[in-house]
Computed example of a mutant assay.
Amino acid sequence: MTAGARIGHLVTSGQFSLDGGTWDVDNNVWIVGDDHEAIVIDAAHDADAIAEAVGDRRLTAIICTHAHNDHIDAAPALAARTGAPILLHGDDLPLWKQTHPDRMPDGELADGQVVTVAGIELTVLHTPGHAPGAVCLHAPALTALFSGDTLFAGGPGATGRSYSDFPTIVASIRDRLLTLPGETVVHTGHGETTTVSAEAPQLGEWVDRGY
């Protein structure tokens, strides 16, 4: 691990809305950086709380793992407060526009793109299924994967709503995530962390259950 680089975490609460339904949710917000600069992964619900957690560090990017409203609702306010650009995979723009029709992201994420902060490289992995433009971020120097809602402790993200597809998310997890080193810690969009080695044996069960 690069000296000084670390992973920060806070949980924010709000609502997830899609397809006419609304649910109360708790979201993980991840902050990667050192004492001087940081990025935020998924600016959920509470721009003030996220800005407080960032503190006086320079925020270099607000990265969206996907564009469900509960992961992006605080992004414009945080960007306005800090000047940091909002980055999103282009395939999720239709979802983004449902929440922020008058404010586009500032840049697009692409598969294989490398985001650098505090000397740490995070590689963008396009992992569609939960959403068309869903991405994960792999930071080998931190032995970390930021999985958004693609992979949770115990199973893949939900695929029962618009813009989602179960065979696609299974392929994304199998081909892009379970091939990472087993000790990689998976920092999820909701709930507890897990590891690649803990989730890999369950792949066949997910398929059998039509998870």
Rank of each mutant, 00 (worst) to 15 (best):
T116K: 12
A200L: 13
A47R: 04
L142E: 00
H190G: 02
V207E: 15
G148L: 00
R209N: 15
A3K: 13
G155M: 12
G133P: 11
H190N: 10
G133D: 09
E192M: 06
E199V: 05
T2H: 10
E37Q: 12
R161P: 07
Y163H: 14
G90V: 10
A75K: 02
T184L: 02
H100Q: 09
I41H: 02
S147T: 04
R174H: 12
V11I: 15
S17H: 15
T116P: 03
H71D: 03
A110Y: 10
W23Y: 15
H71N: 13
H187C: 10
D42P: 00
W30R: 03
T22F: 10
G4M: 05
G107D: 13
M104G: 12
T12C: 02
I72A: 09
T195I: 01
L87A: 13
I63G: 02
W30A: 00
P85M: 05
E205C: 08
A74P: 02
I173D: 03
V170K: 09
I39H: 01
G90W: 09
G210M: 13
I86A: 03
G112F: 04
P181D: 00
A200W: 00
G148Y: 01
T65W: 05
L137M: 05
P101V: 04
H45N: 01
I120H: 11
V196M: 05
T194V: 01
A49C: 08
A77K: 11
R58I: 11
L95P: 09
P94K: 10
T194K: 00
